Simulated scan of single mutants.
Amino acid sequence: MSLLEIRANRRRARLVRFQSRDGDNYRDLSNQLGALGPVIESANDVGVVMAEECARLRCLPVRAELETSPYRLPRELKIWSFDFLARRARVAAMHNGEILGLASDLPSGDEDVVVKLRPGRYFDFFCSNLLAPFDIWETGRKLPLLRGRELILDQRGQLMSFRRSRLANTVGVSSLAFTTDGQLILVAQAEDNVGSPGLIAPSGSGALEPRDIPQDGTGLTIADIALRGAERELREECHISSHEVKTSQIVGHGRWISRGAMPEFCVVTLLQLTSDQVLDRAIRLVERPYVSEVLAVDLAPIARWNPKKPLTMLPEKVRRSASWPLAFGLACLAQSIGDQSWPLRQELMKRLAQETLPASGESSRAPTQRQQRPVRGGA
């Protein structure tokens, strides 16, 4: 039976093509998405900041619960999975690790709702969320066998909820880490990285995994789990130890529309390291297929931060290479800094306003305006 299935897959593969919708900017959904929050565009992608959910996350806990049954590809996607995975695996570094997906939506108000997390495998995410930017065509047919947009929109053309979605909806987590001298750490992703190949990503970014859930499994909140996942990715990609992380706070939740409307969370982290100490460290061998370089940059003055135009917060040399998770995280940061109750506001503003410390024996009086430093990288 397995041999027959393999032969059938190979015959079908010769007749099927996966047509990418790289030019799909989802502008026809702008009114619908704009009602949810700022619509964020990067060079190649588009997504939306879920404004009300972000506000809830920053001020009130959202309980989370892990489902026992794992995600399974629905039949209408499974029949294309072998061929799609085989073709894409030739040009990307990946493995079929365990992941966590979002199986229900976050509350937008103060209601007590339990958010459902569901275990799954990375290949299932690959063959569902990462299939959504493609249309499937078969030789000789005038209409596609599957329109990728149908995986994220319902029959009324509305964005599908996570509860009704047929996709794995792997939870993306990322961190914006600031050093003691006020620089933002960024990661240049390798060309073979599935996430944002060849682009500049946040300080650490990746997928939520079962190991990010505390072993006792009690008193879980989505913010705590996202924090654990984001800090783990930061430590792995930037070669940082746990004791070198001072504190982290969640700043936002969004949906990466051009990635099957997958969920994305971002946290802000304050490090107990200078930018030089971070840049002086070698990239870990296991991370080299995914990370090509670690960078440190100055952001624009806070007065110019705009959650609707987050890329303007970056140096011009970085803007065109920014990944969507980076643009999304900066938008959330710009929203959070205006919130007087945000726990990291005062310390982050202090770090961003300070000057490079004077050398021993020099005056300790700080200049009134911060010096502009170039983008720096290290390996």
Rank of each mutant, 00 (worst) to 15 (best):
S2K: 05
S2C: 13
R12E: 10
A13K: 05
A13P: 00
R17W: 12
R17N: 05
F18L: 07
G23M: 14
D24S: 15
D28Q: 13
D28G: 06
N31L: 12
Q32G: 12
L33A: 08
L33M: 11
A35V: 10
L36A: 13
A43T: 10
M50Q: 13
A51E: 13
E52A: 15
C54V: 04
C54D: 08
C54N: 07
L57G: 03
R58K: 12
P61T: 11
V62I: 02
P74T: 02
P74G: 05
F84C: 13
F84H: 10
F84W: 08
L85Q: 10
V91Q: 03
A93S: 13
S104T: 03
D105E: 03
P107W: 08
P107F: 10
D112M: 10
V114G: 06
V115Y: 14
K116V: 01
R118G: 01
L130Y: 00
P133E: 12
W137V: 10
W137C: 08
G140C: 05
L151R: 01
I152F: 03
Q158H: 15
A168G: 06
F178G: 04
L186D: 05
L186S: 06
Q189D: 14
N193Q: 11
G198D: 11
I200T: 12
S205F: 14
G206S: 09
A207H: 09
L208V: 02
P210F: 02
P214R: 14
T218F: 10
G219D: 07
L220C: 13
A223I: 01
D224P: 03
D224H: 13
L227Q: 15
R228T: 11
A230C: 02
C238P: 05
S241Y: 00
S242F: 10
H243G: 03
T247G: 09
T247I: 12
T247D: 13
Q249V: 15
I250H: 09
V251F: 11
G252E: 10
R259Q: 09
A261P: 01
F265S: 06
V267L: 02
T269E: 14
L270R: 11
L271T: 01
L273Q: 04
Q277C: 05
Q277L: 06
L279D: 10
A282D: 07
A282I: 02
V291D: 02
A296C: 04
L299F: 07
L299V: 04
P301Y: 09
K309Q: 08
T312Q: 12
E316Y: 15
S321P: 00
S321L: 15
A322S: 13
A322N: 11
L326S: 06
A331T: 10
C332W: 09
D339K: 10
D339F: 08
Q340N: 03
Q340A: 05
S341P: 01
W342H: 13
P343L: 06
E347K: 02
E347A: 09
M349P: 00
R351K: 12
R351V: 04
T356N: 06
A366F: 00
R373I: 01
V375P: 04
V375R: 06
